[in-house]
Deep mutational scan, measured.
Amino acid sequence: IRCIGVSNRDFVEGMSGGTWVDVVLEHGGCVTVMAQDKPTVDIELVTTTVSNMAEVRSYCYEASISDMASDSRCPTQGEAYLDKQSDTQYVCKRTLVDRGWGNGCGLFGKGSLVTCAKFTCSKKMTGKSIQPENLEYRIMLSVHGSQHSGMIVNDTGYETDENRAKVEVTPNSPRAEATLGGFGSLGLDCEPRTGLDFSDLYYLTMNNKHWLVHKEWFHDIPLPWHAGADTGTPHWNNKEALVEFKDAHAKRQTVVVLGSQEGAVHTALAGALEAEMDGAKGKLFSGHLKCRLKMDKLRLKGVSYSLCTAAFTFTKVPAETLHGTVTVEVQYAGTDGPCKIPVQMAVDMQTLTPVGRLITANPVITESTENSKMMLELDPPFGDSYIVIGVGDKKITHHWHRSGSTIGKAFEATVRGAKRMAVLGDTAWDFGSVGGVFNSLGKGIHQIFGAAFKSLFGGMSWFSQILIGTLLVWLGLNTKNGSISLTCLALGGVMIFLSTAVSA
């Protein structure tokens, strides 16, 4: 259960009878995928790494000078000259100064003066180019299975845990398959586009800190620079940016070097996208990844198990997540596992009318040892309800109150669905055939309105939902006002479609 501690969480529900669903994975976010007769899966884009970055340009932001020398000439005696002028490691300046009897010249006039100092770069920052084909995306998957609280967001041991898996995709191999043991396998067909235009970005490294910066900004930095990788004795261009020549006297000129420019660069980098280094690879934390999940090989585990009949206890007080759902960790005293956990939410304890829904599909106890633990997640209705676990006299209950409203949740879900469709863009549509167009249209309606429909009408039977949709269509056909007619027709059509397409 990876997503319960992530604030940016998206719930995606598969269409009834569908074998695939489109998701948008982004750094700092987590996606929970639910479908009829399929286990619930949490998917998170953990890291995006980039390798084989080529150094484009380096800037010196802290330097020192040494070996200063000057040469001067009297008027009419030609130009002052130093051998160091031809050495690229030196920074030199030529000027004219007033000369006369007082400073060793027989004539009054302008004399030539040249001053040089050896330039040494102490600290530099480097910009590297990123090729999209060198990106690698690491995705962690977790099935809502027989897990306890100690396994949440624990990325170790996934090789031997059938509840978890790690997959890596690249532009050259965008397809992967996550093996989930008894739950089958989940196929991923990803489109490795981060949403960032790397043709316009460089990877900047300064003092063990890293950013993504725009090329134009990078090339306009007014500091000494050299092109390409460091060859040991780089040729620094624009050395004068960190060196200041003071007022010249008759035979000498003082040279000083400016202080470190790291603070000024940090100020200019305010708002830039931060990154990290992992050995020789860069780690990015921006952008998104679009994936199509193929769920035809994914299956529920323990459908044929019998119900657990022994007593359950709450190991922890049920807690609310950031998303309005409830996490419950229970301990089973029996030894008759594997068995299914009898769990439901009810409005009252007399009729036990089921409300809400299970995020953890078909929760089971897989071990036959005593005191096995299991964590599950529920989506309670707004208002008061009861969490009921167990059967008969051994069942345990917990009162729950959820604040908020169904309308607010439906609106929030619609906005999130619209954002998801905007990110998917043209990849969500198939114009290759008439059937493809209608299929894409259905998927689009489901992406945007599916979660809201589930919130508003999830407790009704599909037949009642179709009746309401048919009534809206009838009202649309018999209303003389054009805008009201079109609105009723659209709402009725969407409702009829979703009542037959969205899983219960």
Score class of each variant (00 low, 15 high):
L298E: 04
I466D: 09
N103D: 11
G184I: 05
E240L: 13
L273C: 11
T32E: 06
K297F: 03
G150N: 14
K443A: 10
S405D: 06
G442D: 05
T76M: 08
K110I: 06
Y202T: 14
T321D: 08
L322V: 11
I359R: 08
K373H: 02
Y137S: 02
D336C: 12
A165G: 05
V330N: 08
V21M: 09
I365E: 03
G324K: 09
H323R: 14
E168I: 09
T49M: 15
K38C: 09
K246V: 02
I466N: 09
Y332Q: 09
K124S: 12
L196S: 07
T406N: 14
G404P: 04
F453Y: 13
T160L: 05
I387L: 02
F198S: 08
D247N: 05
F453A: 05
Q36Y: 08
D10N: 07
E133D: 11
V97D: 05
N207I: 12
S304C: 00
E79H: 09
S461K: 09
Y137A: 02
R138Q: 15
T500E: 04
D426T: 14
P39W: 11
S385V: 12
K394P: 05
F457K: 12
L258I: 03
A241I: 12
Q89N: 11
T406G: 00
G450N: 10
V24H: 07
G302P: 00
Q465N: 06
S485W: 09
T313F: 00
K301P: 00
G271W: 08
Q331V: 05
L204F: 12
K394H: 12
T470D: 07
L300K: 05
C308H: 10
G404A: 10
I359S: 01
N238E: 06
L284K: 03
W217H: 08
E276V: 14
Q465P: 08
V423T: 06
R99P: 04
T115P: 03
D430P: 03
S464R: 11
G334Y: 08
A451Y: 11
E276T: 13
P234G: 13
G337R: 10
T327V: 01
D83R: 00
I1S: 00
Y137E: 04
G182E: 03
D155R: 03
Q261D: 11
V50K: 04
I387Y: 07
G417A: 07
D71Q: 09
F411Y: 14
A410M: 12
G150D: 15
N238C: 11
V391C: 14
L186R: 01
T309N: 15
G127S: 01
E26A: 03
G181Q: 07
K281W: 00
A452Y: 12
G390D: 07
M34V: 09
L82S: 08
C291P: 02
R252L: 01
M295V: 11
L358S: 15
G392R: 14
F438L: 15
K394F: 02
T366E: 00
S485R: 02
V415F: 14
C308Q: 08
Q331D: 08
W236T: 02
S129P: 00
E274S: 10
L186K: 05
E62Y: 11
H401C: 10
P338C: 06
R164N: 08
T500F: 07
F108T: 02
T414R: 01
G157F: 04
V213F: 08
K84D: 03
D83T: 13
D278N: 11
V97C: 08
L201P: 01
N172S: 09
V91E: 04
R357F: 08
G408M: 11
I139G: 01
K419C: 12
S86W: 03
K118H: 02
P354F: 00
V391L: 14
Y90E: 10
L45R: 02
D98S: 04
D155H: 15
L352C: 00
K297L: 00
A268M: 13
G442C: 03
E377Q: 10
L477V: 15
T233P: 13
S464W: 14
K294Q: 08
I130V: 14
N154M: 09
F108R: 01
A227T: 15
G493R: 08
S70K: 05
F198H: 03
F463G: 09
A490F: 14
V50A: 15
G417M: 12
T500M: 11
K443W: 08
V391W: 14
M206R: 02
H401W: 14
R9T: 07
R416V: 02
R299L: 01
S483I: 07
A504V: 13
H226R: 04
K123S: 12
T500W: 12
L107V: 03
H446T: 00
L284M: 13
V50G: 03
D393I: 03
T366I: 05
F11E: 08
G104Y: 06
A452H: 05
V46Y: 07
H266A: 12
F449T: 10
C30N: 07
G390N: 07
V12D: 07
P192Y: 04
A80W: 11
Q147M: 11
G18F: 01
N207T: 14
Y202R: 01
L471T: 13
M15L: 04
P222T: 12
H144G: 06
M375A: 13
T95F: 05
G182A: 12
V50P: 00
K290Y: 04
D42A: 01
D296K: 06
T32P: 00
G14K: 09
D393V: 14
V364I: 15
T267R: 15
D197A: 04
E168A: 02
T32L: 00
E191I: 12
R175Y: 11
H323N: 05
F218R: 02
V50E: 04
F438T: 00
E216S: 04
Q36K: 15
T479Y: 09
D155I: 11
F431M: 13
Y158N: 12
C92Y: 13
T233G: 14
T479R: 00
V364D: 00
A268W: 12
K301N: 03
A418N: 10
P192K: 06
V326P: 02
D197C: 07
M460G: 03
A80D: 01
Q331E: 14
Y90A: 08
G5R: 05
F438Q: 06
T160V: 15
F453V: 12
N371F: 13
C291W: 03
A280D: 05
G279M: 09
Y202E: 07
S433H: 04
Y332F: 05
Y158C: 13
F411R: 05
T327R: 01
A80S: 01
R357E: 05
H210W: 12
A361H: 04
Y90P: 05
V502Y: 11
A229E: 09
A165S: 15
K93H: 11
L180N: 10
E244H: 06
T325Q: 09
W20M: 08
F314N: 03
G282V: 14
V46G: 11
T231G: 12
T32S: 06
K294T: 02
T309H: 02
Q261W: 11
D161H: 12
A346I: 03
S260P: 10
G29T: 15
C308Y: 09
E377C: 05
G232I: 02
S86F: 02
V243Q: 03
T479K: 10
F183E: 08
I468V: 13
H249D: 07
C190K: 10
R94E: 14
G334I: 06
G182K: 05
G404E: 03
F245Q: 07
K443N: 14
T170F: 06
K301S: 03
E191C: 10
G476H: 09
Q253V: 05
K84E: 07
V56A: 12
Q447T: 01
K316V: 00
R402Q: 05
C116F: 09
G442Q: 08
